[in-house]
Each structure stands twice: as structure tokens, then as C-alpha cells.
């Protein structure tokens, strides 16, 4: 276990080295947050309730969605692409080191780092803007929220892992990743709660893994979901995790086999 703790530490050290890079990345997330925040704030200037959301619930949604970005969407798995393309992946394959565990550790390190900054930034934002927000204290709401967040995290990890592994076969895995990030931002609920979309579209979206990364946990936090929605949500998370974990394992084996057959 100690080796993964060392992987964790070296990931943080690496993040600390690229201070400017990291500062810019945080600046980007803050601007993104402020942008969405003020769009919704101005929508509510003229009316009290839009799409069934109050000012407090929508602004809370925006802040929780930002938290989901830090917890779920921050990742180092995609580093794998460069490592495969450059051939440096051989350095992992000859060492007594678990491939999935290595990247999972890197991911957790990255997430904790980002969460730290999120807390600082959002506290500042709340102090300065004093928005009306909902502080959720009910355990029966918070526990499903935490579980759903964890589920989203696993889904995102698997998706990224699978897409990154395509680097074994194609030269440009950043293409599909970029496409995926567009899907995540819009269909995952990063910009707006997706239940404001037309019902048929919303129903279809809820069958895809994307809403479970941001929308579903954020909505759970608000405590405004019906039991049937919650149960069906968790069932779909469970199904996706089962499918994605299996697919990830198959992809890893196939990737290694391809690598060992073709070399690099």
C-alpha cells in the first residue's frame, strides 16, 4: 500500500511544480462558475420561479455542480495517452505496480487537490456575494448524495480509462476525449439542470451515464427528487458501473495484448 501513498505524494508534488498552470486551471473553473452563476442570477431578477427552480435552489445547484466538477471531473487518467504514445508505458509494465491502482491513486490525489481549492474559492464567493443558498443538513439526503457522487466518480474514471486506452490503437485519443468533454458539460448538467429540457429528451438522457456525473448528485443534494426517481437513478448508475468496469477490464487486456503483439 505504501507504494501508492508515494504515487499520491508525487502527484501532488507534480501539481505544485506547475503553479502557473494550476492557477490558470483554477481561474478557468472560477470564471466558468461565475459565468453560470450570473446567468442564472440575472434570469431570476425578473421572476421568482423558473422551470420549477427558485433562486436559492438554482444557485445552490450551480455551486454543487462546481463541486462535482472538482470531485468527479478532475482526473489524471488521461496522462496515460501521452505515456502510451511516447512508449513510456513500458516503464509501468516492467514494474511490480498495479495499472488501475496506479491511475486511481493519481486520480484521487488530483481530486483532493482540486476539492481543497474549490472549498477555498466557494467560501470566498459565498462571503462576497452572499447568495441565497440551501445548506443541506438532512442525513437521509446527504448519504444518497455521497453515494451518488462516488458512483459518478467511478463512472467517469472508467469512461476516461477506456477512452485513454484507445491510444494503443489510434494516434489521436484527444479527439474523442474532447468530444466527450462537450457532452459532459452540456448533457451532464454542468451548465444547467437538465430537467429543464423537454421531457422526452430528458428521459433519454437519463439512460446515458452523463447526467450521473453532475446533474444527479447535485439534484439529490437539493432534496427535491421523488423516491422513484432516486431508485431508478441508482439502478442506472449500478448498471453503468457494471458495464463500464467490465469494458475497462476487457480494454486493458486487449490493449496490452495489442501492445505486446505490435510493440511500440
Amino acid at each position: 500500500m505504501k507504494k501508492y501513498w508515494e504515487v499520491f505524494k508525487i502527484t501532488w508534488q507534480q501539481l505544485l511544480i506547475y503553479r502557473v498552470n494550476f492557477a490558470l486551471w483554477r481561474l478557468r473553473t472560477i470564471l466558468q462558475l461565475l459565468l453560470v452563476y450570473f446567468i442564472w442570477w440575472s434570469v431570476f431578477q425578473s421572476q421568482d420561479k423558473v422551470f420549477g427552480y427558485t433562486t436559492a435552489s438554482i444557485l445552490t445547484y450551480v455551486l454543487v455542480a462546481a463541486l462535482m466538477r472538482a470531485v468527479v471531473l478532475s482526473t489524471r487518467v488521461t496522462d496515460m495517452i501521452d505515456s502510451i504514445n511516447s512508449g513510456n508505458i513500458v516503464n509501468f509494465l516492467i514494474k511490480p505496480l498495479g495499472f488501475i491502482r496506479y491511475y486511481l491513486t493519481r486520480d484521487i490525489a488530483d481530486k483532493l487537490f482540486n476539492i481543497g481549492f474549490y472549498i477555498a474559492e466557494v467560501s470566498l464567493l459565498i462571503l462576497l456575494l452572499k447568495p441565497p443558498i440551501i445548506i443541506q443538513t438532512k442525513l437521509p439526503v446527504l448519504i444518497p448524495f455521497f453515494i451518488a457522487t462516488l458512483g459518478g466518480l467511478v463512472i467517469y474514471f472508467c469512461i476516461n480509462f477506456i477512452v485513454s486506452l484507445t491510444a494503443f490503437w489510434v494516434e489521436n485519443s484527444w479527439g474523442p476525449l474532447f468530444l466527450m468533454s462537450v457532452f459532459l458539460e452540456s448533457l451532464g448538467g454542468g451548465l444547467f439542470p437538465i430537467d429543464i429540457l423537454p421531457k422526452p429528451l430528458f428521459d433519454i438522457l437519463m439512460l446515458t451515464p452523463f447526467p450521473y456525473l453532475i446533474y444527479f448528485p447535485a439534484k439529490l443534494y437539493l432534496g427535491s427528487m421523488s423516491y422513484s426517481e432516486i431508485i431508478s437513478g441508482f439502478s442506472i448508475i449500478f448498471i453503468w458501473i457494471t458495464v463500464l468496469v467490465a469494458l475497462m477490464r476487457v480494454s486493458i487486456n486487449a490493449g496490452f495484448r495489442h501492445f505486446s503483439a505490435v510493440g511500440n
Binding site: 507504494k3 508515494e6 504515487v7 511544480i17 514494474k95 511490480p96
Partner: peptide, 18 residues
Amino acid sequence: WWDLPAWDSFILNKEIYE
């Protein structure tokens, strides 16, 4: 590790190889 001193990579390998 490109961005870090060699020493840090040594420590990582120390743990990996126990």
C-alpha cells in the same frame, strides 16, 4: 519524472520495489 528532481523518482521506485 520530468518535472521533479531525480531524487523524487528514486523514492517512488524505492516504494514500488519495496
